[in-house]
């Protein structure tokens, strides 16, 4: 049974459609990747699915609940890691997890054990009492994933979980995401513009371009559909979107990296 189901989900900003009639379903236990260049509508899709913004038309069910009419029920079963590094720098890592464990109503008796376990698994135990302001980008991302481990949502939405991380940190985050699925049976919906990430991690990917779903399937299926030997997901993307994934993003990427640097510096 699909745990996320969208039907003609659309979002309009002024005269432009950020997301166009998106229809897709994600099965329970999947890691689903939304792939696309800057401005494709990935974040907008996630914001609708996490009840942050209402769709202009169409709709979606998460865990069987309507994202607009039953927003509160949806919020009980989901977790969300926004695109920006968003832990509170003025609190320690431990405190960040503690506050969210309370907001998500983790039973008091289990809070401490779960927080300590999550910090341990994410390799943050020795920094637990340090202010997050002093963390590196990779550490903040791991802390945010630790947050999800503490409250254990049924569906976790990750918006570009590895953007701005160096290759080692990126690899570490991928491994942790995989563990969330195996350890807690979480369904994970993530966005990325790293083909490698999608190929490595996702059971299925959707290629989004200018708000439209251009292709949908397992990485292997998509590569096979090109009928060229040794096709990569990059080739798939060029084929469906008519442009390379890595172009066009440089300005926003730098700006984002700079913003992250400023936050951490």
């Amino acid at each position: 049974m699909p745990i996320v189901e969208t039907r003609n989900l659309s979002k309009r900003y002024g005269s432009s459609l950020a997301v166009k009639e998106l229809t897709l379903s994600v099965e329970s236990g999947e890691i689903f990747g939304l792939l696309g260049p800057n401005g494709a509508g990935k974040s907008t899709t996630l914001k609708m699915l996490t009840t942050l913004i209402p769709p202009t038309s169409g709709g979606a069910l998460v865990g069987g609940c309507d994202i607009v009419r039953q927003a509160n029920a949806v919020r009980r079963i989901i977790g969300y890691v926004p695109q920006l590094l968003s832990a509170d720098g003025a609190l320690s890592g431990f405190e960040n997890l503690l506050i969210f464990s309370k907001l998500y109503e983790v039973p008091r008796a289990q809070r401490r054990a779960r927080i300590e376990e999550a910090l341990e698994v994410m390799g943050l135990s020795e920094f637990a009492r340090k202010l997050v302001r002093t963390y590196s980008g990779g550490m903040i991302r791991r802390l945010e994933i630790a947050q999800a481990m503490v409250y254990r949502p049924k569906v976790l939405f990750l918006d570009e979980p590895t953007v701005g991380l160096d290759p080692v940190a990126r690899q570490a985050v991928w491994e942790r995401i995989g563990e969330l699925r195996t350890a807690y049976g979480m369904t994970i919906v993530l966005t990325t513009h790293y083909m490698e990430e999608a190929d490595d991690l996702c059971s299925r990917v959707g290629i989004l371009h200018l708000g439209e779903m251009m292709a949908l399937g397992t990485p292997a299926e998509l590569k096979a559909s090109l009928r060229v030997p040794d096709a990569t997901l990059d080739d798939v993307f060029v084929n469906f979107a008519g442009t390379s994934l890595q172009t066009g993003g440089s300005y926003r990427d730098t700006r984002r990296a700079r913003r992250t640097a400023r936050r951490l510096g």
């Binding site: 914001k47 996490t50 009840t51 942050l52 509160n72 919020r75 009980r76 989901i78 977790g79 969300y80 890691v81 926004p82 695109q83 920006l84 590094l85 968003s86 832990a87 509170d88 969210f100 907001l103 998500y104 109503e105 936050r263």
Partner: peptide, 12 residues
């Protein structure tokens, strides 16, 4: 900073 988003998504 994106922090507010996480509060709004929480069941509060």
């Amino acid at each position: 900073l994106g922090i507010l988003h996480k509060f709004l998504v929480s069941p509060s």
